[in-house]
Amino acid sequence: MATIPMTPAELDEPKTSLWRDAWYRLVRNKLAIFGLFVIVVLAFAAAFGPYLTPYDFLSQDLNARNASPSLAHLFGTDDLGRDVFSRVIYGTRTAFVVAIVVTAIAVTIGVALGAMAGFFGGWFDRIIMWLTDVTMSVPNLLLVVVINASLKAPLAGWMEAQYLATLNPFFRETIWVDFILVFGSMALISWPPYARLVRAQVLSIRSRPYITAARALGLTTRIILLRYVVPNAVGPLIVSVSAGLGTAMVLESAFSFLGVGVNPPTPSWGNMISDGLRVWQHYPHLLAAPAAVLGLATVGFSFLGDGLNDALNPRGSK
């Protein structure tokens, strides 16, 4: 039969229609595209902005303190004469790094524990659910404050000692202490919703006929989990990750605002908002600029999340 290509090479290249279909549905959704556009612009700013900004985020111009927005300083300057536009852009990088790393850690923990809890059930499920309950019932801010307050000094001291011992400049960057603590504590409070979502998905998927069919093929539990259960749970997960990235940015800002996040002078929207709030009656631009960008980012992620939800559930909704 000449019509049937039988060489492995020809047979091996799969097309991507499930995701392509979803993509077509997504681009028809105006709000989702707006959200995607906002995120792409912000991501670009996060990646390349610091090389393109007109000023260094630390360079001070004490002759132009608290200047209003102008052509020279698009968002004006702050109380030390630093260019707010440059700082907001650098803050975008902080926000993205924190949001992506925190969400990645939280999703990894949440998916692994949630999938196993849902699939195996029994005592394992009970322990995991108990853990999520406990984590979710402790006030988030309290937990983060306690972790930061109790670990920051020892960790910084340890880094200092390492630097003195090795002279490795890595250990002199106190920003790593911030990041480890911020990432760690935020991931710690962020994983339970992912675990619950995945567990609920797995519980419903577990009883679907195609899982019984897969078991009737003699496939191992590991393969069934990896290739049948998890991929089917991934749609809602993508949606919640998209929203979760926005939430993580708000969370980071909230912690910075409270002084348990990324420390000055590293710019973060949160500590800019917190600084701006003190003087907003006189210099509203110091509050408006970071707050507006944070708002925009959150809206972008939530629009994209909604769009993904519709795009990935072709048979649900409408």
Binding site: P209, Y210, A216, G218, L219, R227, Y228, P231, N232
Partner: peptide
């Protein structure tokens, strides 16, 4: 596990839900 799918093949009632939709 060797019998399942190996010596015994199973065809299920509902073709709409018995195939993995994302594979």
């Amino acid at each position: 596990r060797k019998v399942r799918g190996g010596q015994v093949g199973f065809v299920f009632q509902d073709p709409m839900t018995s195939l993995n939709p994302v594979m």
